[in-house]
Design a protein around this nucleic acid. Sequence first.
DNA 1: AGGTATTCACATGAAACTATTCTCTGAGTTAGG
DNA 2: TAACTCAGAGAATAGTTTCATGTGAATACCTGT
Length: 401
Amino acid sequence: MDGVDKIFDSYAKNGLFENKAVLQANYTPETIPHRNKQIESVASILAPTLKGEKVSNLFVYGKTGTGKTLSVQHVGNRIEKRVKDSGDKKLRFLYLNCKLKKVADTEYRIIAELINKLGGKIPATGLPTDSVYKKFVEMVDSEKQVIILVLDEIDQAVEKISDGFIYSLTRLNSELVNSQICLIGISNSVTFMDNLDPRVRSSLGEEELVFSPYNALQLQDILRERANQAFKKGAVGDGIIAKCAAYAAREHGDARRALDLLRVSGELAEREGGNKILEKHIDAANSKIDRDKMVDIIESEPKQFQLVLKAIINLNDKKEGGGIYTGEVYNEYQNICEKTKSEVLTQRRIGDILAEFDMLGVINAKVISKGRQGRTREIKLMLSPNIREETDKILADALGN
DNA sequence: AGGTATTCACATGAAACTATTCTCTGAGTTAGG
DNA sequence: TAACTCAGAGAATAGTTTCATGTGAATACCTGT
């Protein structure tokens, strides 16, 4: 009876989870608490499709984890079911997440993916975009039907491609003879609409819907409902739910985060062999989630990014507290490249890489002007000590030294 | 002293280039009738 | 003659370089008191 057996034993005996899938990100719950109003709005906007009538395009926005995607999909499923039951009208509900890398982050791939969902076939590459587009129109228009097209994280798509793409989609209706198409855009950036072509804005934003963040009490309701299904009885106290909710509420009311927190807490408690989640598990889970996320990011970053990060870390160690500037980073970066015999990129490119690190929250870079000493980014490394440790390991590993 | 003009060290943008990935096409090759 | 193979053409993407333009404020330079 060694340690491994002991682990297996205790796992089999007192697993905390009844059904862990309930807490996972892709789970679709039966009910969606505190979103009735929004769901009804979506439903009333989409209702005309049941009669095959033209409906307004809809634009939905709200922070991550506020139930946007869930609500829209919920309504979509209901409509589809309804249509299937009554059986006369043809209606397709297409959901597409534009952020998924390698699936739908270019114009070509988005349309190709849509064609796939419609049941058509298209090679992953090798065809001119407009012929793919033509094929799409053809497929849509091949019979009399209504198509509800949901583009999730649409802001990502526009950033990568251009808004001309969406413009042509919104204008699609005029090209279609038989069918109707209804566009639903989902975005978590409120400002996304502002720097959009006015024509696109007006046609996409015929109807708008805002999902505001959940507050702590609402999060508690959500958690409680899911916890009931996910855990065995008695595993979760009420204080635990409240604490998870409070943590997540602090982070702009992100329900996904709250659920993650609960799940990871459960996993930690289980691993310790306990039969109950304790408060300390939540704290541990909280930092574990942050750490895992960051480590994941750094680990999966391409080599050049890691070299730049290494340069920043070196400088950070060398001059405790003092500001780090782009030029310094570039010099240090060049040194490291020389040592590791890597290709050296231009300063222009390093600037972009720094901006991306800033976006990811690895560093905090503020553009400041030092007067006669020019304009530059003032960079602060944002890795907490325990993440820092892991990072060093990863970098040493990846860069071989 | 107070007001302008300079100037620095990059930031930020746009366009062009490169390497790689993928499919399709058609020529040439092979195998079977 | 049909089936098969394989190089090359065309297209798209990611990552980068090249060229161009922008910019906030410390400093240098005036100006008139």
